[in-house]
Structures are given as C-alpha cells and as structure tokens.
Simulated assay, not measured.
Amino acid sequence: MTIAPVPPTFDARRSGPSALVLRHDAGIGLGNVATTLASRGYAVTTVDTPTGDVAGVDPLAWDVVVALGGEEGAYETERYPYLAREIDLLAARAEARRPILGICLGAQMLAVALGARAWRGDVHEVGFVPVDLTPDGVGTPVAHVAGVPMMQWHHDTFEVPVGARLLATSPSYPQAFAVDDWLLAVQFHPEVDDAIADGWIERWADDVAHLPGVDAAALTTAKEQHLAAAQRASRAMVGAWLDGLAGTVGR
C-alpha cells in the first residue's frame, strides 16, 4: 500500500474512490482514519514523504488527500525540503478546491498553503484535551468531537487562513478550520488508535515528562479512560466529512 514515489501519470480514480496519504513518520500513521476510509470504499495509497518524491505527483489525481502529522514544523521547509513540495501540492489542490484532510502538521501545512502562518507556540499541548466548538463549528463534522477529550501532541500552531472558518478551539490553540465542505484541518489527532497511542507513549513520554501531570503512567491512564470515545467521535467526524463530499469524488 505504500509507494515512493507515486507514478506521476497514475489516475487513482479509475478504480473508484481513492485517497492519497502523505505520511511523515511510520509511527504517525492513518490508524483510526483508515477504518472510516475503508468503510466508504476508498482505496488508500500512502507516500512516505521524507523518502518519496511528491514533486512529480499529480495533485488532482486523487479523490481525497490526507496530510498526516509529524515532528517537523510546517515552517521548517529549509531543514526539511520535502515539506515545501508537500505544501506546493496542497496549494495546487486547494486552488482546484479538491478535498483535503489535514491532521496536526498536515493542518499547519494547509494553513501555510492557503497563505497563513504556522509557528512554535508557547504551550506544549499533550494528552487528551476536550475540543470546544465555535459558533461556526455547530452543525459541521467537527461537532461530533465537541466536548470529547481528543489526543493532542504538539507545540506548534497555526493562523486560520483568510476565507476559512474556525470550527473549534482548545484552551490554548485553534483546533479546526474548514473551507466550505471540501477542506478540513484539525490540530488534534483523530487517527490515534491503541497501537499509535502506545507507540507515542513509548517513544516520546520521556520528552514531555516535565509537563505538569504528563508522564507515561498518566498518559496510559488517560488513554484507557478516553481513547474509545475519541475513536468513536473521530470516526463519526471523518465519516460525516467524507459523506459531505458526495458529488465531488470520482469526477
């Protein structure tokens, strides 16, 4: 399922609904979102962008593009040149108003692709944090996660682009924005499942143990308390977003 690079002449639409996933780390994968894509019949192709050349990929050959998270910052394009190529791909796709889902780093790259700014914030937001709707978030797919503690693991944040609607916030940061029905960007992690959460705790809990109430034991306890509800809410959110694309896929 993972290829690098994608042949530039590939047309995924020939075989039905298709999703191109831009992945930056094997430990930050599609996870819970894969279940929802599969339930809607999407064929998924994943490109590991640090090693896969996305510069030759046709940004319009896919029904949906999903940009996942990563340790990189969307503002670190000189350090990670592949991010610049991803941002170009997202910008070209956005110009054509083709469906995109951005998660964490993916959301930050989408903000940059739409002319806004991403930067390292003042607060390191880690663990399960409730998401609060804005008035513009009511009645949108993001309403499915309202009040549900969602997995967060980030220090970076973004400016909401001009023309986008801020749908949700946390106490520290914007959490979701949208453009019409075709673009959804979320700072929290709807993809996190048991395996991903366990992997993150094993890899990075020591890095955040200085934060109040955040260590491996606390994160594991929070996972046991909140992950099942977060996964259900995430599947409902992503499913509602995909269902709202009716008439735009496969064309």
Rank of each mutant, 00 (worst) to 15 (best):
T49G: 03
A113L: 06
A146W: 10
V131Y: 05
P135A: 13
M109I: 09
V214Q: 04
Y42T: 05
R203D: 08
Q231W: 04
I3M: 15
I3R: 10
L89W: 01
G73F: 06
I100N: 03
T46D: 12
V138C: 07
P17K: 07
Y173P: 00
R93G: 04
P59I: 03
G73V: 09
P161V: 05
A91S: 10
T35P: 00
D63N: 13
T2Q: 10
G250D: 14
T49V: 08
A96H: 14
D193C: 07
T169N: 05
W153R: 00
H210P: 02
L183Q: 02
V54Y: 00
R98F: 11
V142E: 00
P7L: 08
F158T: 01
R93V: 07
D88W: 02
A222V: 03
D132L: 09
L105G: 05
L133P: 14
D88F: 07
V33E: 03
G56C: 06
P174W: 06
P59T: 11
A229L: 09
P81I: 09
Q231E: 13
G250Y: 05
G137W: 00
A19W: 00
A74C: 09
A91T: 02
T221M: 07
A236Y: 06
R165S: 15
F188I: 10
A43H: 03
H155D: 12
V44L: 08
T49A: 15
Y82G: 10
A55I: 02
W241I: 13
